[in-house]
Design a protein around this nucleic acid. Structure first.
Lengths: 215, 215
DNA sequence: TTATGAAAGTTGCAATTGCAACTTGTAAAT
DNA sequence: ATTTACAAGTTGCAATTGCAACTTTCATAA
């Protein structure tokens, strides 16, 4: 889902003009926007890629999100927590577009068709991110590893209604995603296998049980 | 933050007309919208209140969110998970407004000023909800109760930069919020008190330590 | 004033998890 | 064919947590 979907080159350039965007280029492993903290802005990756790195109260760093071409970041205007994140470019020639919210939300922007198309796209992308975040909360609210796994399976199952779930990442990353210890997760996966709840073959997990709400 | 902020009565009624909204009224403890699942819609509480109840893979029910007047629900178009939720009215005369996304996002809506005001409001509200969800994920990703509490304190601290945190709910609800066992949380709070990290007086928690990133 | 209910706070114990330190499997590079 | 690197998988043990069953405190209504 691209924020510029439905816009041709001319409209795109008019949009950038209207929104008084700024573009910045980075080499690999540079921090994006260290000087722009506390500003009321969000960004779009135009080229290259970057990682959002979360720094917790102890200073521990973890990769929160991997940004690729056309990913948005800082869309939730989290002025409060912006200090807790670092965004680091992962390639040379990483280019980002910065948009100011105050300019974005000016009333009279909406007389331009290209602006309205762009806003619809933003709306959809943010909604989609919100849905993903919501899925994650549902999983993390579970107290046991087993419950987190089963909730994850349930959510994935309902995306296709197929009993075979193809993981978008490896098992180690799954452990990170559901925020549990890797070896403890393997232990629990083994239990689920032995109890004939699932089978695991590489990145394919097959559910052998009835989902709660569906057959 | 009201979705109708900046709109007068006339504009509001024009908006409802433009968006072809539907209104529904409920008595206490009725399920809102059981028949409209799988539809591409979201809702706004106009009067009264309701609870969003999450049903997990085992059938366990927990209150996910409390909706009051002018709260939005289903904004993330979670067609996939809609079956996992029930929305139950909590008062007689609870009235909800239902808006269809396809109608909401029609291109030519934006020639109306009241529509643009409404969309800006939606944008802000959704962003705000996103920020809250993000805060919650940051907390739930922590493995220990102590780390969850300290992350929570850090987040709350940065909203005001005051060492005294006034909880918006009681300690029991805090345990629910950070998704840990209540008595285990009390045990950890006691440890933090004994180690002179915090003091607790009712709903006021005072931080006695230096925050990581700030003094 | 007393009763009532709910939140606050405590404790012992069993279950679950994190952690560390392994081995095994596998795919790609030399 | 052998090395290298990393994911997959295992295990024992200590630490943390959930759970249940309490007591205490406090506010509110009878």
């Amino acid at each position: 889902m691209s924020p510029f979907e439905g816009l041709n080159m001319l409209q795109k350039s008019k949009l950038f003009n209207l929104l008084e965007v700024h573009k910045y280029k980075y080499k690999k492993n540079q921090e994006i926007l260290p000087t722009l903290r506390h500003e009321n802005i969000f960004g779009i990756i135009l080229e290259g890629s970057a990682d959002i790195i979360s720094v917790d109260y102890e200073g521990n760093e973890t990769i929160m999100e991997k940004l690729s071409k056309e990913s948005l970041f800082n869309t939730y205007m989290n002025l409060i927590n912006f200090e807790d994140y670092e965004i680091i470019s992962k390639e040379d020639n990483t280019e980002v577009l910065i948009i100011n919210y105050n300019i974005l939300l000016r009333q009279d922007n909406s007389k331009h068709v290209y602006y309205n198309i762009f806003m619809n796209n933003l709306f959809n992308i943010i909604n989609d991110n919100f849905r993903k975040m919501n899925e994650k909360v549902r999983i993390l609210e579970k107290k046991t590893i087993r419950d987190r796994l089963l909730e994850f399976f349930e959510i994935e199952y309902k995306k296709t209604y197929r009993k075979i779930i193809e993981l978008p990442f490896n098992l180690k990353d799954l452990a990170d995603y559901i925020a549990v210890n890797r070896s403890a997760m393997f232990r629990e996966l083994r239990n689920l296998k032995e109890e004939r709840f699932i089978t695991v073959k590489g990145k394919k997990i097959t559910l052998l049980y009835k989902s709660n709400n569906f057959i």
